Computed example of a mutant assay.
Amino acid sequence: MPYPEGHKLKVRGKIIQSAAQAFRTNGIRDISVPFIMKGAGLTHGGFYSHFDNKEQLVAEACRYAISDTLQLLQEAAEQQKQGPKINAVIDYYLSQYHRDVTEMGCILPALSGEISRSSEEIRQIFTQELERMIDFISDIAGIDKSTGSFLLSTMVGTLVLARSVNDSKLSDSLLTSGKQHAKALVMT
């Protein structure tokens, strides 16, 4: 009995989603294809009917993860009733929730260090997706791209440090001061 129309595309989407969650939490190098396929509820034997190699999956997972993050940030901005929408974006990005739920978080702080040692293909996709994030931040804040790049870099760096320390008070303090200074940057 043949699969219904769109089945292969749906399965591919499940694999990409599983990979994005796994990469966000554990990085690229430490995640195997069988682990990703298991997370999608599939056996690893079917991987190559959807992707040429793991690099292709990494590239598509980066696209998916950035789109997912942009959607969450857009939703946060739309819920902002008073004040600049960028404040809601900053509050969400530098929240305890975003810090703690890595599998649903932004891929930029999760993978930047690893991406720098990846193939040109992956680095190119990551660069394009980073540019999408910069454009989003710049547009929603009403600032130029240079300032948007700085703001995003500040937010990503703050999140990396807040996730890295084992002192919860320090981590919370980093998030709080990051929010305060990120918002001040936009107001100047």
Rank of each mutant, 00 (worst) to 15 (best):
residue 40 A to I: 01
residue 185 L to R: 05
residue 16 I to K: 04
residue 172 D to K: 14
residue 60 E to M: 14
residue 171 S to N: 01
residue 179 K to I: 09
residue 23 F to N: 06
residue 53 N to S: 13
residue 184 A to V: 08
residue 3 Y to P: 06
residue 9 L to S: 08
residue 129 E to Y: 00
residue 181 H to R: 13
residue 97 Y to R: 09
residue 170 L to V: 15
residue 179 K to W: 00
residue 177 S to C: 10
residue 90 I to L: 04
residue 181 H to D: 13
residue 172 D to Y: 05
residue 116 S to I: 15
residue 7 H to M: 10
residue 34 P to Y: 07
residue 72 L to K: 09
residue 186 V to R: 07
residue 158 T to W: 07
residue 2 P to I: 08
residue 68 D to H: 10
residue 65 A to R: 02
residue 65 A to N: 03
residue 124 Q to Y: 12
residue 138 S to H: 05
residue 40 A to N: 06
residue 16 I to V: 10
residue 178 G to R: 05
residue 140 I to F: 03
residue 29 R to E: 14
residue 15 I to M: 04
residue 57 L to W: 01
residue 117 R to I: 05
residue 140 I to A: 02
residue 47 F to M: 01
residue 174 L to P: 01
residue 125 I to N: 01
residue 178 G to I: 06
residue 157 G to Y: 01
residue 101 V to G: 00
residue 115 I to G: 00
residue 172 D to V: 01
residue 42 L to M: 10
residue 127 T to S: 14
residue 111 L to D: 06
residue 71 Q to T: 11
residue 43 T to G: 11
residue 177 S to H: 13
residue 42 L to W: 02
residue 123 R to E: 06
residue 61 A to F: 02
residue 35 F to A: 15
residue 18 S to H: 03
residue 36 I to K: 07
residue 123 R to A: 04
residue 28 I to D: 05
residue 103 E to R: 13
residue 156 V to I: 14
residue 109 P to H: 07
residue 12 R to D: 08
residue 46 G to T: 09
residue 84 P to D: 13
residue 137 I to F: 07
residue 151 L to W: 03
residue 18 S to D: 02
residue 178 G to H: 06
residue 81 K to A: 13
residue 72 L to G: 08
residue 16 I to N: 06
residue 72 L to S: 13
residue 117 R to Q: 15
residue 78 E to Y: 06
residue 111 L to Q: 05
residue 45 G to T: 05
residue 114 E to L: 04
residue 100 D to P: 05
residue 183 K to N: 13
residue 167 D to W: 00
residue 128 Q to C: 09
residue 66 I to M: 13
residue 67 S to A: 13
residue 12 R to N: 09
residue 5 E to Q: 11
residue 13 G to N: 09
residue 37 M to L: 11
residue 84 P to A: 10
residue 175 L to W: 04
residue 65 A to L: 03
residue 169 K to C: 10
residue 31 I to A: 05
residue 159 L to G: 07
residue 178 G to T: 05
residue 24 R to M: 08
residue 183 K to A: 11
residue 150 F to S: 15
residue 30 D to S: 14
residue 186 V to A: 06
residue 14 K to I: 00
residue 86 I to D: 12
residue 127 T to K: 13
residue 159 L to C: 08
residue 152 L to Q: 11
residue 120 E to K: 11
residue 33 V to K: 07
residue 134 I to F: 03
residue 54 K to M: 01
residue 95 S to V: 01
residue 110 A to P: 03
residue 85 K to L: 07
residue 137 I to K: 06
residue 30 D to P: 00
residue 172 D to F: 00
residue 40 A to E: 04
residue 75 E to Q: 15
residue 30 D to R: 10
residue 9 L to D: 12
residue 74 Q to T: 11
residue 99 R to H: 06
residue 5 E to L: 12
residue 38 K to R: 12
residue 13 G to A: 08
residue 97 Y to N: 11
residue 150 F to V: 15
residue 109 P to S: 12
residue 43 T to K: 12
residue 171 S to W: 00
residue 135 D to R: 09
residue 119 S to R: 00
residue 104 M to L: 13
residue 9 L to Q: 10
residue 5 E to F: 09
residue 186 V to E: 04
residue 135 D to I: 12
residue 121 E to S: 14
residue 136 F to P: 09
residue 182 A to W: 08
residue 5 E to K: 15
residue 149 S to G: 15
residue 48 Y to D: 08
residue 65 A to Q: 08
residue 87 N to I: 01
residue 99 R to D: 07
residue 38 K to Y: 11
